[in-house]
Amino acid sequence: MNHRTHRRVAAAALIATAITAATACGPAGTDAGAKNTAGASPSPAKPKDAFDGLTGTQISDKAKTALQGVTSLRLTGDAPDDSGGTLIMDIAMDTKGSCRATITQPTGGVIQLIKNRGTIVMKGDEKFWRTSLASGEKELTAKQTDAFLELVKGRWMKVDKKTSKAMIRKDMCDLSTLSDELKQDSGSTMSRGADITRAGQSLAVIYDRDGDEVSTVHVAKTGKPYPVEIINTGGTDAGTIKLSEFDKPVDATLPPADQILDTNKLRR
């Protein structure tokens, strides 16, 4: 995966909510209140709408502010890869530099990453390694490939600084960096659609349309106004991102030393 893909995977969920322009549709739908007739039982009072009277842009601003205050979150979903395929991701990150990620590539190969402050370890399955070796600059024989696969099977590799810069952008697994980008992003105009209820949670629906491309964001109406789902349709960035586990600890425990491969063996 290249830098551009990393940015889509990690930054899209945060930057898509950084909307600051000021025009939108008003709240969708109104409730016509009927007067009680004699003997009629009064209808139970509806809970106050936290976003009553707010435009899509104003709701987006609230979501942006809420995200800037989180100490950790989990991001799951899919995003397009530059090859034309789709990446499936599950990334948990915090502001302390901890991260745990599982990414399935378009080829079906799976790579796992753990970042614990300055240390990064990775583990790929057989399909990931076979694809990586086949696309490498140095062509390996079948015997060399089998020997390598046997060496890395079920084991983690510690990634040195040079390799980590090539593999993973800082903002992919660093919530603080993403939050800084979120503050600087100018965004675009959001409109408000009809609210929805999903899994018992009431959500405001805001969206941005640019030609055939539509970015829809679902924002929690109860508790803090976190964006919980971002759906991009049309264009080249189609995909769905879900955000959850806000402010929950990220398990970035490194594997035992005997499960981490000494990369010096790979250079022999």
Rank of each mutant, 00 (worst) to 15 (best):
F51R: 10
V205K: 14
G223C: 07
T163F: 04
A142D: 11
D61Q: 15
I260K: 08
W156T: 08
Q58E: 14
K153A: 13
T107W: 12
T76M: 10
E229S: 03
T23V: 08
A134D: 12
I206W: 07
G97T: 00
K221G: 01
F246D: 05
S179G: 13
D237R: 10
K242Q: 15
T119R: 12
I19Q: 09
V219D: 04
A79W: 06
A21E: 10
Y207A: 06
G239H: 13
G124T: 10
D174H: 15
P44V: 11
G223T: 07
G234M: 13
N232Y: 06
L261N: 06
L73A: 11
A79K: 11
T5I: 07
R117F: 00
A220T: 04
A28F: 11
P227I: 14
D262S: 06
N116R: 12
A18F: 06
T233Y: 08
Q105E: 12
G124K: 07
A63I: 11
T177P: 00
A10E: 03
C25H: 14
K35T: 15
I260H: 05
C99W: 00
T197G: 05
R100L: 08
G109K: 07
H218T: 08
E245V: 00
V250D: 02
T107L: 04
L151A: 04
A147S: 12
T222F: 03
I120M: 15
K248V: 10
I120N: 13
A13I: 07
A38F: 02
A199G: 00
T145W: 01
Q184E: 11
V250W: 07
L182T: 09
A204E: 08
K64C: 02
L266F: 07
D49Y: 00
Q68L: 15
S176A: 10
C173F: 13
T20F: 03
D61A: 11
G29E: 09
K35D: 14
S215G: 05
T76L: 08
A142K: 15
V70S: 05
A257D: 15
F128H: 04
L266A: 03
T102P: 02
L14N: 12
